[in-house]
């Protein structure tokens, strides 16, 4: 073991991330090499400094988070039980109405004035007279997802008209082979705002790769999602198709362009399962630029199995 190798392994020694054998070799070297022992001491000091880089949690933060979570979970559960939209809406509107000025005896009068709100929803009108007469309850926790779009006075009768835009959650249950379910999943797989959702969705879709459009979605995600977790999941979903020409050319593109060596490693592992010549050109290009030893070695082996030269010329 060279001093350079030893010193590169020191952080992992301190983290206990070396195998028994590696540790053994390292200790032997350290026993005989003063400069490396010195380097180990420096690494220890560095780790001690790193320890200082952690910020302690501000004391009330955890409790606040827990409280807020409990409220939001309760809201969502309430929504599932079919709690009236009016109750939720009323709760939501509370902060705007129930400012200190309205909090006292003046409130009942205000309540009288707004008891006959007319509500225009984007798209659908849900104002059945029975619902409107339901007295608002103000003990519901406000939910996000409602935005007041327009307000206007209606005629001269003291009523106001408020147009709301609501984001409503709805649950849909169905099988993966149902085209409508698949359509929803395919669009969720591209939700740019939410990589967590994309990972989950790809995970579900990979059970249904029989369909060409699902396979296509996985190929797209594997090649172009900006989240490595999503790309990896998509790649795993394509495992069964390692012989499929379209999948193979996508895997070759991943090898050439993905910056994540973990993903490239998986890609080459899939490609070598089938000794097909279709990707020779890409593999030769890869040999010119790949710097990961494992990937180079696998690529070289595949090329030689295919009787292709390792160089592209």
């Amino acid at each position: 073991m060279t001093c350079e190798n030893v010193q590169a392994s020191l952080p992992f020694l301190l983290y206990g991330e070396l195998s028994f054998d590696e540790e053994e070799q390292l200790e032997q070297h350290l026993g005989a090499c003063a400069p490396c022992r010195q380097a180990l001491e420096e690494m220890r000091a560095l780790h001690a400094a790193f320890d200082q880089s952690a910020e302690p949690l501000p004391a009330p933060l955890l409790l606040e988070c827990r409280r807020e979570l409990r409220e939001r979970v309760r809201e969502e559960a309430g929504g599932k039980r079919g709690l009236g939209w009016w109750a939720k809406l009323a709760g939501r509107l509370r902060p705007a109405f129930l400012t200190p000025a309205f909090g006292s005896p003046a409130w009942p009068r205000v309540l009288g004035a707004v008891a006959m709100l007319m509500l225009g929803f984007a798209g659908a009108r849900l104002t059945s007279p029975a619902t409107v007469r339901t007295p608002p309850t103000y003990d519901t926790v406000p939910v996000s997802g409602t935005r007041v779009r327009f307000v206007e006075p209606a005629e001269n009768n003291g009523l106001v008209k408020i147009t709301l835009e609501e984001t409503r959650e709805r649950q849909v249950t169905g099988k993966l082979d149902d085209a409508r379910i698949r359509q929803l999943l395919l669009s969720a797989a591209q939700d740019p705002a939410d990589p967590g959702l994309r990972v989950e969705t790809i995970g579900l879709l990979q059970r249904e790769t029989e369909t060409a459009e699902v396979r296509q979605a996985l190929i797209t995600a594997m090649q172009s999602d900006d989240n490595a977790g999503v790309r990896m999941k998509a790649l795993q979903g394509l495992k069964r198709y390692a012989a499929h020409p379209e999948v193979r050319s996508a895997l070759a593109a991943v090898l050439l362009h993905d910056g994540n060596s973990g993903i490239r490693t998986q890609a080459i592992d899939l490609l070598v399962q089938h000794k097909q010549r279709d990707v020779v050109g890409a593999l030769q290009q890869l040999m010119e630029r790949e710097d990961n030893d494992y990937i180079r070695q696998r690529t070289r082996r595949l090329l030689s199995d295919l009787n292709a030269s390792v160089d592209s010329f």
Binding site: A45, L46, V230, S261, G262
Partner: peptide
């Protein structure tokens, strides 16, 4: 967790350690 290999995580940690060490310089 990050959808990558142990080796890749190891390399990542190594780079982080190197950068942090460079930033601390002679200070440690």
């Amino acid at each position: 967790i990050l959808g990558t290999s142990e080796e890749a995580a190891k390399n990542c940690l190594f780079r982080a350690t190197q950068k942090m060490r460079a930033a601390l310089g002679e200070f440690v």
